[in-house]
Each structure stands twice: as C-alpha cells, then as structure tokens.
C-alpha cells in the first residue's frame, strides 16, 4: 500500500515536470539544428540560430532595450518603493492604510487594465508622446514599485525601532541615521524587491504594448510579433534566445540556492 502510494506520487511529479519541461527542452535541442519547425526535417547540427541572435541588429537592439528598461525601471522602483515604505511605516494609521490600499491596486489589477488606463491618461488625455519613453517607464515603474514596497515592509516591521533613536542620540543627523542605520537593515528586502521588479519588467507584455513607442520592442512584444510574421530565420533565432534565458535562469537559481545554503551553514557555525 505504502509503496504504491510512493510510486503514484513519483509518477505524478514526473508527469507534471514533463509537461513543464518537455516543450522548453525540445526547443533547446532543436535550436542547435537547422530545422525550421519542431518535428520537422533535421539536416544537421548547427549554431546558425545563435549566430543570427548575436549578429542581427534588430534582435540585439531589442534584447538590449529590454534589459535597459528592466534595470532602469527596477532602480527607480527600488528607490521609490523603499522611500515610500519607510515613510508610510512611520505615518499615522489613516495615511498608512490609504497608501497600503493604493499600493495594492496595481498588484491585484489586470495588467491589461493598468496598461490601458495609463495609456488613456498619459497619451490620450495629457498628450505625452509615446516616443519620449516617458509613458513606458512610468508604466513599468507602476508595475514594479508596489512589489518593492511589499518586500521592504516586513523588514521594517522586524527592525528594532530603538536603533534609529540611538543613532540620533549619538549625534547622527536624521539623514545619516536613515542611510547608515535604517537602510542597511532593509537591504535584503530592497534587494529581493529589486530582483522581483526586474523579473516583472522582463516578463511584461501588456503595459509595454499600451505605452511603448511604435519602433521600440521588448522581448515579449517582439516574440508575439515574430510568431505572426513569416520570417523563419527570426523564429528559430528566438529558440536560441529561449534556450539562453532558460540556462541563465537555471544558473541564477542554483547560485542563489548555494549562496543561501552557505549563509545558513555559517550562521549555524556561529
């Protein structure tokens, strides 16, 4: 009885993992061939897709733009969200609750609605040009900042309140106390908020489509257009991109796990 249960459990896990990974891995295998579709005729091993990915100006510009936008939006969000969280934490109850509720709106709202409403306000009503990138950056900051706020908040709650007062008593100015005492304590929260902001921005499609300049594309909007277009060369080059991103994600996850385990073991030793 127990053994059958274990077998069924293992089979279920393997099946779900297969559902998740077979498409990604199959695409990775085909990205190293000259095939034009999965299951299609394979002539032989080829790095052509990877060469196209690095040589094609369009593709390179698109990838660079996506990363630049993600890092920029995440940096702005990290600053804005951290300052907002500190300010709201020390505010009166009503102000705090209002900010908490407003912060929750972009989190629960559908991205389509967030993007469309920002487009109507900024581009249609206020007439800010899409080509200025202002609506796009604002859109991504709206998407990311609430999550920075949410990951800094728990750190503020855990922090010993007396530290700030002690710093002031020892002669620090409020600004010094903030930068040298409070913010270092919040750093892990700010960092995880920043990482979350980057992944959210990289993954976004909807806010980008509704606010981006016509000639600018992120990975998401580019891929969606490419699946509709007939350019096989671009299509298969995107398989290479998918494989590279998959490898980067795996490496980052493994490194983070190793780092956290090392930290744990050193803590245990202490």
């Amino acid at each position: 009885m127990k053994i059958t249960k274990k077998v069924i459990s293992a089979v279920w896990l393997v099946l779900v993992l297969a559902f998740i990974y077979v498409p990604i891995l199959l695409l990775a295998v085909y990205s190293f061939t000259d095939a034009t579709m999965v299951g299609g005729p394979v002539g032989g091993f080829s790095f052509q897709n990877y060469l196209t990915l690095f040589k094609n100006e369009d593709l390179r510009g698109m990838i660079g733009g996506t990363i630049l936008l993600a890092v920029g939006a995440a940096l702005i969000s990290a600053v804005l969200g951290t300052i907002g969280a500190i300010g709201s934490f020390y505010s009166k109850r009503t102000a705090k609750h209002l900010i908490n509720y407003a912060n929750q709106i972009p989190v629960v709202n559908a991205d389509v609605v967030t993007g469309f409403s920002l487009c109507v306000l900024l581009i249609v009503l206020l007439g800010i040009g899409k080509d200025t990138f202002v609506p796009l950056v604002i859109g991504h900051v709206v998407l990311c900042t609430p999550f920075v706020y949410l990951s800094v908040m728990p750190r503020l709650r855990q922090m010993d309140n007396n530290l700030y007062e002690a710093a002031l008593d020892l002669g620090a100015t409020p600004a010094q106390a903030l930068f040298k005492v409070v913010i270092p304590q919040l750093l892990p929260g700010i960092f995880s908020g920043f990482m979350l902001a980057i992944t959210l921005s990289l993954d976004d499609y909807f806010i980008t489509t509704y606010t981006k300049p016509a000639t600018f594309d992120t990975i998401s909007t580019y891929v969606v257009n490419a699946t509709k277009g007939g350019q096989t060369e671009i299509k298969t080059a995107l398989w290479a991109l998918s494989t590279i991103i998959f490898l980067i994600v795996v490496i980052v996850v493994v490194l983070m796990n190793v780092a956290s385990r090392k930290k744990k073991t050193t803590e245990e030793r202490i």
Partner: peptide
Amino acid sequence: INFTLRITALKE
C-alpha cells in the same frame, strides 16, 4: 522565463 518564449515552445 519570459512567458511569450514559453508559449512559443508550447506552440511548437
């Protein structure tokens, strides 16, 4: 992983 790339893989 970017969801459009994952959907591309699934589509294939």
